[in-house]
Design a protein around this nucleic acid. Structure first.
Length: 414
RNA sequence: GCGUCGGUGGCGGAGUGGUCAAUCGCGGAUGGCUGUAACCCAUCUGACUUAGGUCUACGUAGGUUCGAAUCCUACCCGGCGCA
């Protein structure tokens, strides 16, 4: 077994967080205490933060991306380097995402304002809009350009136009797994289709069924490659915001012999909790669960409450680079004028190793003057904030005080 | 002193008779960002405003014209060249 998982503590019976758990996940490259936050290093590098600093911040595992590394530098380079961890000099456990998210971000979501989390009311597209969108059975080379998209889905796989040079590339579940074997992460995901919440029910169902078939193909491709037996594969639950589909998807994916499970999709904020609850009840207790692409501090605590174990999210580093830092009182945008003379610590209520001596005024200055150090400090701060938040949640679960911990957080964070 | 080129909004720099409160870039303000096409993107950036407009503006002062940042005259200031 490439991976073992055991649960050490659970949320209190009859509490809102009775499904929460704290556990230990072991891989060939080390142990992960869960719940855990997984910093994202899409292209085999967490933007702005050295591996050594990640360790100091408390990071236990990092996640990279198949699509991006396949395009650059190519999986063969990573393979010859000795695998992802060796390539980037990260000594702990690693994960890779399958490229399924790029089906969405370069496909239906391309050039749109809609992203991982949709804002406000989600309105299903009209039949006309759907007809014009990316769903075709036979790939037409001009379709992508025509509709301003870089990814086109069909039943067999996805055709991408490289965002680097416009060249055409093809991903199938088998190909994604093959690349992920070359990347060699301890844990990786089955190839899936992440859908837009604006898609109607019928399409969510169709995409979900396709994701299930792809899951089976991903799993089969993985099990057939005995040289990859140190790697673990996670299946991904889809189903959009519909609770019945989420349930069905979770049941279906759970019936397959995956080592762990991911919950994917693009949500509107209001639908997230419901979709999560619907899926989780169908997942086996004894395997790790990863909430893909989530999230913001509050979303993570809510995910933990529902029983999720792993979280990855680009928000911490992206927000940091763009000038926003997390504080116990909520996020603040350090580039705002009001921080020019604010000589307080970034967040007076926490200590993030490596950034504890910097003032808001200083980092504000660095960010506004576009000094790269500002982005580094803000990214480190945000990663440290999230990791400590999750560490605290794990601690609270062990102590039986998680519900209190969560409500304390929401009482001051807004 | 003569000649010549030029003086435009915080800065750089377009515009060279009406469609100009004036393209664009920088700077500034604010917002966005949740499996990273993301050191990115969006909006605003003369004043007042009942948000439709109103007023003051393209070195200064006059003038031509229905109409001038744009044409003419004088002056002031700057670069360059010659004395």
């Amino acid at each position: 077994m490439a991976l073992t998982f055991s649960i050490l503590a659970r949320g209190k019976e009859n509490s809102l967080s009775k499904n929460a758990r704290a556990g230990v996940l072991t891989t060939k490259h080390g142990t992960i205490h869960t719940p855990a936050f997984v910093p994202v290093g899409t292209k085999a590098g967490v933007k702005g933060v050295l591996p050594e600093q990640l360790v100091n911040l408390g990071a236990q595992v990092v996640l990279a991306n198949t699509y991006h590394l396949y395009l650059q530098p190519g999986e063969e380079v990573v393979k010859q380097a000795g695998g992802l961890g060796s390539f980037m000099d990260w000594k702990g456990p690693t994960m890779t995402d399958s490229g399924g998210f790029q089906v969405f971000s370069l496909g239906a979501a391309f050039g749109k304002t809609i992203t991982k989390i949709a804002k406000g009311e989600v309105i299903a597209r009209t039949e006309e809009e759907i007809a014009q969108a990316q769903h075709v059975s036979v790939y037409d080379e001009d379709v992508a350009t025509q509709h301003g998209q870089l990814a086109i889905v069909d039943d067999e796989g996805v055709t991408f136009t490289s965002h680097h040079d416009g060249s055409l590339h093809r991903f199938t579940p088998e190909r994604s797994v093959e690349i992920q074997h070359a990347l060699g992460a301890d844990m990786f995901f089955a190839f899936d289709e992440c859908t837009s919440p604006t898609e109607p029910y019928e399409y969510q169902k169709e995409a979900m069924d396709r994701t299930h078939r792809w899951a089976l193909r991903s799993l089969k491709a993985h099990r057939q490659n005995l040289s990859a037996k140190d790697q673990s594969i996670f299946g991904i639950v889809q189903g959009g915001r519909h609770e019945d589909l989420r349930k069905e998807s979770a049941r279906e994916i759970a019936s397959m012999e995956f080592d762990g499970f991911g919950i994917g999709g693009s949500f509107s904020k209001e639908d997230m909790q419901g979709a999560l609850q619907a899926a989780i009840t169908e997942l086996p207790e004894d395997k790790p669960r990863h909430f893909l692409g989530i999230g913001e501090p509050g979303d993570i605590l809510n995910g933990i409450a529902e029983g999720m174990d792993l979280f990855d999210c680009v928000a911490a580093t992206r927000l940091g680079r763009h000038g926003t830092i997390y504080t116990k009182q909520g996020p603040i945008n350090l580039t705002n004028e009001k921080f020019t003379y604010d000589f307080a610590p970034l967040d007076p209520h926490i200590v993030v190793p490596g950034t504890e001596g910097f003032t808001r005024a200083y980092v504000s200055h660095l960010l506004k003057s576009k000094e790269i150090l500002g982005q580094v400090i803000a990214s480190m701060h945000n990663l440290g904030f999230i990791i400590q938040l999750v560490d605290g949640a794990r601690e609270a679960l062990m102590q039986g005080t998680f519900e209190q911990y969560r409500s304390d957080f929401f009482a001051s964070y807004y």
